[in-house]
Amino acid sequence: MSQPVAQEKINKAPTSVPDRLFSSLSRASAVTILLVLSGVAFFLTIVGWSGMFGDIEGMSGSDNFLEYVGPLVFGTVYSATLALLIATPLAFAVALFISHYAPRRLAQTLGYVVDLLAAIPSVVFGIWGITVVAPLMSKNVYPWANDNLSFIPFFSGTASTSGRTMLTAGMVLAMMILPIITAISREVFLQTPRLHEEASLALGATKWEMIRQAVVPYGRSGVISGAMLGLGRALGETMAVAIILSPSDGYFWSILTNQNSNTIASNIALKFPEAYGLDVNRLIATGLVLFLLSFGVNMLARRVANSGFSGAAG
């Protein structure tokens, strides 16, 4: 007999003062987020408009906007893709090790350390990249890759002696997005139903076979959405790239040279302090492009994640 009463309580709008206070507070927060987001988009569009379609004579260089932003978009996507190619297999392996191989204590410690990576400020990553990774790679790895692999276009050109290359930037970016991909992969791997793991083991699967048969298919979409979130972060990363990369104008496929397409975010950071007039609008317009790019990637990630952990939903 308590059920109808309880039901009534649930259906009724909250009446007590704290209830109402909390509900309006949370509603206000939600609205604020929407306002901020649309405000940013609005600002970027309004201010960037004249950067996109304004008088080219008023800007440094005489390219039209598409010619200006093209190499930047290319550099942004290229560096982020490199980072993703390096980070995803690594994150996948680390996540599997944590979820299925490491003894409990080691797994916990390792998970904690990987999460700590996410707490390092990007400017520190940038300094690490330019002072440690770049010299190390340009001395030991790049000349070798350049000598032996230059038949692959990516490794052609004159190898950089400073190490301020697209590959260095990609490697440092990879370290920066490693934690999020690892954390999400680890969670989905841990969620693999015991039932499926045991089904595989009972068929006579070795541990690795079990992982391929039960764990990986179950976690696949989780890994993909983790990688997408990582890609979103890599696209917008500013300081590390600004510090490491030696940028040039144009499209460059080679990842070992001093000539590299800059990224949108790093280009803004480098040029904004000295920009004036329509150049400012143009930089802001490139910001709008980056905003849309990240937005698209995040939407894609959301869609993949919602399509269910392929296993669970199937």
Binding site: P193, L195, E198, A199, A202, L203, R220, S310, A312, G314
Partner: peptide
């Protein structure tokens, strides 16, 4: 385990 098969309490076909 390859010589001794097992069927579990809850049906557990691989969902993928």
């Amino acid at each position: 385990r390859r010589r001794i098969g097992m069927v579990f309490q809850r049906p557990n076909p691989f969902p993928t």
